[in-house]
Design a protein around this nucleic acid. Sequence first.
DNA 1: AATAGTAGTCATCTTTTTTTGACTAATTGT
DNA 2: ACAATTAGTCAAAAAAAGATGACTACTATT
Lengths: 112, 112
Amino acid sequence: MTTIPEDIAGENCPAEGLLKQLAGKWKPQIFRLALEGPLRFNALLRQLPGASKQSLAVALRELEEAGLLDKHLIRQKPLHIEYELSTRGRALIQIFHSLEEGAKNGDKAQSG
Amino acid sequence: MTTIPEDIAGENCPAEGLLKQLAGKWKPQIFRLALEGPLRFNALLRQLPGASKQSLAVALRELEEAGLLDKHLIRQKPLHIEYELSTRGRALIQIFHSLEEGAKNGDKAQSG
DNA sequence: AATAGTAGTCATCTTTTTTTGACTAATTGT
DNA sequence: ACAATTAGTCAAAAAAAGATGACTACTATT
C-alpha cells in the first residue's frame, strides 16, 4: 500500500484545523467586523470592497459550518438575516486579538 | 474610478497577514516540529508523510520569508542546513499553543 | 567513476480557492 | 404591476496552491 494516512500528520497538529477555519479569504475581516456586532449580508458586502456576493456567501457559510458564526433569521421589517459570533466564536476572541498583536510585533521585527 | 484599494480592508485587519503566514499547507506542522528543535530538510520530509520536496521547500522558504524560521548552514559533517524558530517565531509560540487550545475546545463545542 | 546522502530547483499537471456575472425568490414600497 | 431591497445560488472562468517526477549541485564513500 502506498496510501498514506493523513491523519497521522494532521491529528497531532490541532492548530492546523483552526488555522484553516480562520484563514480563508475575507474570513479574518469578517471575524473582526463580527466583534463589533451582528452582521448583515449586503452591509458586509459594502464594508468589504472587492468581495463578491459569492465569496462572501462562501466565507459566511464556512465560518458558520466551523461553528464560529451563528445565523439568525430576524422576523422584523425588513425581514433579514444576521450573522453573529457563536459561543465558540466568542471563545476565540482573545486568540484573535493575540494574532493581531503578534502581527504587529512581526512587522517591527523584520527590520531588526 | 473602479479601482478598489485593497489596503483599506486589509490594513485594518492585522490578523490576516499572520494567519496567512501560519496557515499554508504543512506550515502548522512544521512550526510544531520546530518547537522541539532545529529541523533538517530530509528528516522533515520523513516526518511529514505525504509532503513532497517541493511542497516542503516552498513552505520552509515562506516561513523563512515571513521571519518565523531562520536558516543556518551547518559547517559540519555532513554539511547540512538547519531551520529553527527565529526570535519572531519564538515570540509566537504562546499564540500557537492558544490556537491548539482553541481548536480542542472547538471540537467539543460542535456537539453541544 | 559510480553511489549515496546533503538540499534543493524546474516545468508541468492537478486540485482548490476565488472571482465574475447572470439568475432566483421573498418582501416592501410606489 | 413594477422597482428596490432582502439574501442568496449557479455555472463558468481565472488565479492560487499543491503535487509529481526529473533534474542540479555539492560532499563523502566505495
